[in-house]
Design a protein around this nucleic acid. Structure first.
Lengths: 226, 226
DNA sequence: CGTGCCCTTGAAGATCTTCAAACGCAGTGG
DNA sequence: CCACTGCGTTTGAAGATCTTCAAGGGCACG
């Protein structure tokens, strides 16, 4: 495996020459916790690929409420289409922990995509994945109860960014009740109550901006018993 | 304007030769009302472009409830990525009125995309639009009340498939309370009550599988006053 | 003329939000 | 080192919103 293996989502199937060209033209950048990478509505300047750390992408609702669209982890792409089309970023991106990433300015990206169409194909694949996720999310919001949605979200976070610890899986980045609420379309109060109940039942262990899943099966049962 | 202008979403920016090649290799097909074009989970056989009529795309929730993802109208693409990747259709497509469309079998589509990369770019653009829509939908489901969501949905339908009639805009295809409920994450009962109230207030006129918007401003006010 | 499908409406009650109050840890500054 | 302060969290109580269930009406189509 190459040392630049985290780039596989972007560069898989690209010729050796294309990979080299892409990596050579990439710019490196670091972000502190809570630092903003870009804001919703700004004209897209670049496409980003995460090396390490984590971003959260949010959208503002009409009434000012924030909605958490997704977390972006190592190897994930971000703002691919907005950069290609030169349109506005559809979300705001903020680091939830110290983060390092590569970026390709808009014009560089366009040139790379023209010379190496497989890169565009890979961006298309990434977008398709996000579309699937978004449809799944909308379907769950439309048909499931809050408890199911929160349980599902925890299970998903465990998969995406879970770190095994003794007797459980820790979601390995800061995660507040408020953020869980913004991911599931509910309030921080309801999330707090659910976590308290699940803690009593031995399904999770909850701390300040920390959640550890103690029983995956238990949470799956919560998802089922609508 | 070309007689094949409905194909602009797919063929804009494609060379004259590419447009000709694409149209030559397209297969024509007709559907009756309620006829199924493809089902969620089947391996994708082709990409579709609507000439006339309307499809509805639905997804099944875990508990068997149907969710209405969107309506597809003339000029709209459908199943582009699933066909390119040879994966499963993510939704079921059903005609809600007599419909005619063009289709490109999977292998033909792949060849066209290779020879004319702009076609793939156009598919990427279409998918991006759907991603935006889906995110908007999820955000609304997460933050807005039922009345707002139903009102918004009616306004959107008026834009997409509205036909001016005396004193209003008719949504120009069959549209049941159940379908409106499946679009907005509520029940047919709640939709029925809302439409009855809005009819009394003079905002809409509702019939069997028919809705006419009498006051766009009135519905916009419903959206606002959360 | 019946039958099926779509629609309406009432009543009861579950689910979830809202508001208010208070707790406790983490980091800061005295 | 301690107190202060901010922020994330917890919990109770009240009540709004929406669903669910039940019953019935009416139009369209065979």
């Amino acid at each position: 495996m190459s040392p630049k293996d985290f780039a596989s989502n972007l560069l898989q199937g690209v010729s050796e020459e294309g990979r080299a060209a892409a990596l050579k033209r990439a710019v490196s950048r670091r972000l502190d916790r809570k630092q903003v990478l870009f804001r919703e509505g700004e004209t897209a300047a670049a496409m980003y690929l995460l090396e390490a750390g984590r971003l959260k992408l949010t959208q503002l609702a009409a009434d000012g409420q924030e909605v958490l669209v997704r977390f972006v982890g190592p190897g994930d792409l971000c703002a691919g289409v907005a950069a290609l089309e030169g349109s506005a970023y559809p979300v705001t991106a903020r680091a939830v922990e110290p983060t390092s990433l590569l970026l390709w300015p808009r014009d560089v990206l366009r040139e790379l995509c023209q010379r190496h169409p497989q890169i565009q194909t890979n961006i298309l694949r990434a977008i398709t994945g996000h579309l699937q996720d978004s449809m799944t999310r909308a379907r769950e919001l439309a048909t499931e109860r809050v408890a199911s949605r929160v349980a599902r979200t925890l299970l998903r976070l465990a998969q995406q960014s879970g770190r095994p610890v003794d007797g459980g899986i820790l979601v390995d980045h800061p995660l507040s009740r408020q953020e869980l609420a913004e991911m599931t379309g509910t309030t921080l109060y309801t999330v707090s109550r659910l976590l308290s109940a699940w803690e009593d039942a031995g399904l999770v262990e909850a701390g300040r901006e920390r959640v550890t899943i103690r029983s995956v099966e238990g949470l799956e049962a919560v998802v089922e018993d609508e």
